[in-house]
């Protein structure tokens, strides 16, 4: 990596912002990992690979809702951005089956739905 300068920082920013497409984020701070986020992350990654899904699976920090960890946030184009909580192995599989593949939201696990107001 060439060192950034005042001039090239902005180019790096625009390039980094260009990531588009579907994604899943798993809260992988201490609170999430203690609640089992590590397993959830592995399952999501395995399933996505197995089914050849076009989706990025990423780690993120603590979103603050520690009471509902492990938290998994999902964005699929054409659907609202959803935060699922209390996600165990079964729920992780259901997210892949129902939400990603079936384009339907899961019952009883949604803790937040983010709507773009712009």
């Amino acid at each position: 990596m060439k060192k950034l300068t005042k001039e090239t920082l902005d180019a790096c920013r625009s390039e980094s912002q260009r990531k588009r497409g579907n994604w899943i984020k798993v809260g992988m701070s201490t609170c999430g990992i203690a609640a089992g986020a590590g397993d959830v992350f592995a399952i999501l990654q395995n399933e996505a690979q197995k089914r050849n899904l076009d989706i990025r699976i990423e780690k993120c920090g603590c979103a603050g809702m520690c009471y509902a960890e492990p938290l998994v946030e999902v964005y699929v184009e054409g659907m609202p951005q959803v935060v699922y909580g209390d996600v165990d192995k079964e729920t992780a599989l259901a997210i892949i089956d129902k939400h990603i593949s079936g384009k339907r939201l899961l019952n009883d696990h949604i803790y937040n739905v983010k709507v773009d107001r712009s």
Binding site: L9, R13, E15, C62
Partner: peptide, 28 residues
């Protein structure tokens, strides 16, 4: 906490994409 739970903490590009290090740049 704006970016906590939004960005990948292990990827500097995620931070830069959310205006990270812009304050430093402008200050310098």
């Amino acid at each position: 906490l704006k970016s906590c739970g939004e960005i990948d903490p292990e990827n500097i590009k995620d931070y830069i994409a959310c205006d990270g290090y812009q304050a430093l740049k402008t200050m310098l």
